[in-house]
């Protein structure tokens, strides 16, 4: 039996619950940056990405330029291109261009992870099922965070705003333990980021969005040129 909506839907539960709590933190962060609750919700519903949204809200708060937004979003979300390329290898032949155009909206790290782990080829119905609860969780969590962030005592709201960064650490550190290349690139990125943050000339002249682009491209490029990847076995 091919993968269907129901199969995807049930597999999306764990992702949805995770997104609910993380986006709560995003909602608080967005409101603390000066956005309204509906702006925060709209951002989550239309973007469905954590790191890109955090950077995007930072640019909005700073009144940044459209080009800065495009460049930052492009670099931060570039990884989705690779995931999409990888997912095409698993797509059913029957998937039309429209099916692909719809399904690709939902490519996130976690949804990609689950979808690419399937034995069978994926299709539009399965992808929509898999994305349903994550989209609801991501949007609802943002709404709750944006609204309740105001009701919560300041001290609690402040403490919750840091949660999304905790999740970023949880993505990077376990991989860095096993993969020296990722560890070195990550440490290099942090060193560059600290430099941009604290050196007065850079701090005053480079906006946070461009600083992220510069730090990550330099460190990833250095890694790609000087630290070859270990051969992956079997799966190719």
């Amino acid at each position: 039996m091919p993968l269907d909506y129901k199969k995807g839907f049930s597999q999306g539960l764990a992702i949805g619950l995770g997104y609910l709590s993380v986006s709560f933190s995003f909602g608080i962060l967005a409101v603390s940056c000066g956005l309204t609750w509906w702006q925060a919700v709209l951002i989550s519903l239309t973007n469905l990405t954590s790191a890109g949204q955090v950077a995007g809200v930072g640019i909005m708060a700073a009144g940044g330029f459209p080009l800065e937004m495009a460049a930052t979003t492009l670099i931060i979300n570039l990884r989705y291109s690779l995931m999409s390329i990888s997912l095409t290898q698993k797509a059913e032949d029957s998937m039309t261009t429209a099916d692909r155009a719809v399904s690709s909206f939902f490519v996130t790290d976690e949804i990609f992870g689950v979808a690419s782990g399937q034995d069978k080829p994926i299709n539009r119905k399965y992808m929509l099922g898999l994305a349903t609860l994550p989209v609801i969780g991501w949007t609802l969590g943002t709404l709750l965070g944006a609204l309740c962030g105001n009701l919560l005592p300041e001290i609690l709201a402040e403490s919750l705003a840091i949660g999304i960064y905790g999740m970023f650490v949880a993505i990077v550190l376990p991989v860095s333990k096993k993969d020296k290349g990722v560890a070195i690139v990550s440490i290099f990125a942090v060193i560059l980021s600290v430099t941009f943050w604290y050196v007065p000339f850079l701090k005053e002249n480079v906006t946070s969005g461009f600083a992220i682009i510069i730090c990550s491209v330099i460190s990833a490029l250095t890694g790609a040129l000087f630290i070859p990847r270990k051969e992956k076995r079997a799966d190719g």
Binding site: I75, V172, V185, V190, C215, S216
Partner: peptide, 13 residues
């Protein structure tokens, strides 16, 4: 492409 996500998250965090 392998390194980019970790580089981005690290410099953002």
């Amino acid at each position: 492409f392998d390194y980019i996500p970790y580089a981005v998250l690290s410099s953002m965090t």
